[in-house]
């Protein structure tokens, strides 16, 4: 038994070392800095206790970024997850040319986010292709283009995000589908279960582990959405998100690193609560095997 414990530890060593060497110090450092008035360019810093946290909660810019981040998370994850699963089921079957479709769907996921954001900035502008197609379809286009209007900017970025992410999660669902032994379907078919029954009683439950991964990772990434905002709107037109707020107050113009670190830890707590809820929802209800 002791050997087994030692083995468990040795196998975990690569992460343990990386964590201890590279990530522990930054985490502790920024946590502490969050309780000071540290400015990036100034060597001085003073302990201010919970002041940063208190002022953040009454900072309208922070509250707005909080609101936008929630809209972003809630508005993208269900779509991304469902579409990704649908695509995975669609290309999981045997048919001619499926490799091409799979690669095509995956292509946005392997293009740099910066480049995608630049492309969509162009497509979304007045006179861009998306505005053109929308007006052909009889939809109303904001006067200055999709990204220059309070009512459409954030949703346009969210739509792009779903478009970009589905390919990656499709791939993970696909890998998950492959872990389901074919025999299960065979025996289900023998006992007379239809396609839909099979999906709900075999496929979905057995996809739970990868499903959890997808939902948790996608939430974390969405809570931390940044590049899209940085490239496309710079937080204007009501699109500022929490990480954008952190970047702007901490790293660019204002250099209030203490304040920004405190904001990062509020974000941390929110994500942690959210993730914990997801782990709880996805907990194994019965022993599958």
């Amino acid at each position: 038994m002791r050997w087994s414990k030692a083995r468990a530890l040795v196998l975990g060593l690569p992460w343990l070392l990386t964590f201890a060497l590279f990530w522990l110090y930054p985490i502790v450092y920024s946590l502490i800095i969050g309780f000071t008035d540290k400015q990036l360019l100034s060597p001085e810093r003073h302990w201010v206790g919970l002041d940063n946290y208190r002022s953040l909660l009454s900072d309208p810019a922070f509250i707005a970024s909080l609101k936008n981040t929630f809209i972003f998370v809630v508005g993208t994850i269900p779509f991304t997850t469902v579409i990704a699963l649908a695509l995975a089921l669609l290309v999981n079957r045997e048919f001619r040319g499926r490799g091409v479709f799979r690669s095509g769907y995956f292509l946005p996921s392997i293009t740099s986010m910066v480049v995608i954001a630049l492309i969509f900035t162009n497509l979304y502008q007045r006179g861009g292709y998306i505005a053109y197609l929308a007006s052909l379809a009889g939809l109303s286009v904001p006067e200055h283009g999709f990204l220059y209007s309070d009512s459409t900017a954030l949703y346009s970025i969210m739509a792009m995000d779903v478009w970009m992410a589905v390919g990656y999660y499709m791939l993970i669902f696909l890998a998950g589908l492959k872990s389901i032994p074919g025999e299960l379907y065979e025996s289900a078919a023998v006992s007379g279960a239809g396609r839909i029954r099979q999906f709900f009683s075999i496929t979905l439950p057995l996809l739970r582990p990868v499903g959890l991964f997808i939902v948790v990772i996608n939430s974390i990434k969405s809570f931390q959405v940044f590049v899209e905002i940085f490239v496309m709107t710079k937080g204007k037109f009501d699109t500022s998100t929490m990480v954008y707020f952190i970047y702007e107050t901490g790293l660019t113009t204002k250099f209030q690193f203490g304040y920004a670190s405190a904001a990062a830890y509020i974000l941390f707590v929110i994500i942690a609560v959210f993730a914990a809820a997801q782990f709880w929802l996805f907990r194994r209800k019965q022993v599958v095997w």
Partner: peptide, 23 residues
């Protein structure tokens, strides 16, 4: 130990890179 290992894995994901990069 393994449970704690996993907690650190998830933990590190939740802190924005912009804060970590300076330290």
């Amino acid at each position: 130990v393994n449970k704690m290992l996993f907690v650190t894995v998830i933990l590190i994901l939740m802190i924005p890179a912009h804060i970590i990069i300076i330290p």
